[in-house]
Amino acid sequence: MEHHPGAHPPSPHPRHHPHSVPTVPAVHTVHTVHTVGGALPAAAVRGPVLAHEHLVLDLDRAGDGAALLGTTRHRTAVTAELAALRAEFGLGLVIELTCRGMGRDPRALARIAEESGVAVVAATGWYYEPFHPDEIRGASVGQLTETLVREIGDGFGDTGIRPGVLGEIGSHGDRPSEPETRALLASAHAALATGLSVATHAQLGRGALAQFALLTGTGLAPHRISLGHQDLLDDPAVHRELAANGAYVAFDTVGKESYQSDDTRLRLLLALLEAGHADRVLLSGDISRHGYLESEGGQGYGHLFRSFLPKARAAGVDDSLIDLLTRRNPLRFLTGAGADADAEEI
Rank of each mutant, 00 (worst) to 15 (best):
R107Q: 08
R162G: 11
E178D: 15
L166I: 15
T98E: 03
P163K: 06
T159L: 00
G164D: 03
E146H: 08
E151P: 11
H172E: 15
H132Q: 07
R104A: 06
A113I: 03
L109H: 01
I169H: 09
R107E: 07
H172C: 15
L166V: 13
I95W: 01
R175S: 15
A110H: 01
D158T: 15
E114N: 11
P106E: 02
A122W: 00
G103A: 12
L148H: 04
F156M: 12
R111S: 00
D174S: 15
I169V: 14
D158A: 14
I152H: 08
D105N: 01
G103R: 05
G125D: 07
G142E: 11
D105M: 00
G117A: 09
A119D: 06
G155A: 05
I95R: 01
A113V: 02
W126S: 01
P163Q: 11
G173S: 09
G117L: 05
A122Q: 00
G153F: 12
D154N: 14
G170Y: 07
I169R: 09
D158E: 14
G142Q: 09
G153V: 12
H132T: 03
P176G: 09
R111P: 00
R111N: 00
T159R: 00
F156L: 12
D134Y: 15
G155R: 04
